[in-house]
Design a protein around this nucleic acid. Structure first.
Lengths: 245, 245
DNA sequence: GGGGAGAGATGCCGC
DNA sequence: GCGGCATTTCTCCCC
């Protein structure tokens, strides 16, 4: 297949909003929110249904370069092979891909209307604590989830029945320094907005870093070892048993 | 091509550490750091050289499901089509992919030894300020970059020649509430470690949110409108002119 | 659309 | 390996 035919085929696939994969050797220039240059190497170029463009290296989870959805994709022949000019607005971003060698092209029209069901998130954690306040202490009485403040959203807010407000910040993995400063910000905001000084801060997480623990002690906050819930209800009868794996 | 031949071809490609693309209809179960289920739909499965596995939907920059590098990938026939069992250790993560319909398979051995040259990062910003202290003020004298403290790393640290220390936190885009709490943490740490109370905090960023600006004023910090540098030196003579695009 | 914050974040660097 | 932190973060949600 000659180059001109190949360009026509790819252009048609783009116009149909097919998902397109190119195995190729290419170099990439990007200018927009930052500026980058990637010298020639073997990569996979990914043009998606939403006109986002991903450039994946042979390794790693993330694209080495990419353009956001709704980009304008121009494809032209060059002396050696193909040239992509990709443009996106707000913010203005430009990308040029010089294809030195096109190994393989593959495309298909894909339809996917399903949504991922996910459990074990931080939201699941705060729900669990709200519904099982004894996880914090036998006195804890939750009042709100996701309490809105000008200085941020509190995961779980409540009191202990003795006039002490309680602010809980959940982390699904390890709480670090940033978690403590975040909690501190909420505690101070609650103190100010409620006009009360008796506000206790609690970090709920399965792990905490040593420095975070020290900073937490400095601020008289508390740490509760709590893990996110991890039980997925599957109504699908074709369900696989991950335990058997 | 029958199913058994197809499995052999894919297995060989996996053993060669080829990058493999499958256009297919599939359902995905994941259990590990969290738990998820994704009902049947059209997707692209991506097996990389490092044995990471990505499942991409027709839209969006990120994989909807994935497994990290160095996973163990088992491929077996099922009643309808193929079944992937993928396993990763530390932490233990399991994934099952049921392929209902395999549309296309493509693979290629890819080699990429190049590194991305990127400019316009936060590090570039702090370097720029360190080398051009007048961007902050005519009195600013930088002392260190990336000053290490137990409670975090200060982007740029210096003084004003009048006994006031200066702590600068850079953000390459918009500074938010978290940037202010971060700066506050550094300022307090410097005050404590140096045993001095005259420490000024400065946010250097092209934008700041309204709430962050308010909090910054509450803490008597300063805001300097500074953008990250964005000039890429290209030694490649095949350089494209992005401006002409 | 701005703002805040999580993510199965990932990836990098430093100790 | 832990820890702190940026990311062309992306993505979701709420106002």
């Amino acid at each position: 297949m000659n180059l001109s035919e190949q360009i026509t085929i790819i252009k048609n696939a783009i116009n149909r909003h097919d998902v397109i994969i190119l195995f190729c050797n290419c170099q990439v220039e990007y200018s927009g929110r930052a500026k980058s240059f990637l010298a020639s190497g073997d990569r996979v170029i990914f043009i998606k249904h939403d006109y986002s463009v991903l450039i994946h290296r042979p390794d790693g989870r993330n694209p080495i370069n990419w353009m956001p959805a709704n980009s304008t994709i121009k494809l032209t022949p060059s002396k050696s092979s193909l040239l992509f000019n990709i443009k996106s607005l707000k913010p203005l971003e430009l990308m040029n891909i010089v294809i030195n060698d096109l190994y393989k092209v593959s495309f298909n029209h894909l339809i996917d209307n399903e949504q991922l069901k996910l459990v074990g998130t931080e939201k699941d954690m705060s729900d669990m604590i709200y519904n099982n306040p004894e996880l914090i202490s036998k006195n804890f009485i939750p009042l709100n989830r996701e309490e809105q403040t000008k200085y941020g959203f509190v995961d779980v807010f409540g009191h202990d029945g003795n006039g002490n407000f309680i602010v809980i910040e959940c982390k699904r993995y390890t709480a670090g320094l940033d978690s403590i400063t975040q909690l501190r910000r909420y505690v101070e905001k609650i103190k100010k907005s409620k006009g009360i000084n008796k506000v206790k801060g609690i970090i709920a997480a399965p792990n905490i870093t040593s420095n975070a623990l020290k900073m937490l002690n400095d601020w008289n906050f508390e740490y509760k070892i709590i893990s996110p819930p991890c039980t997925l209800e599957m109504d699908n009868e074709n369900q696989l048993n991950l335990d058997e794996f």
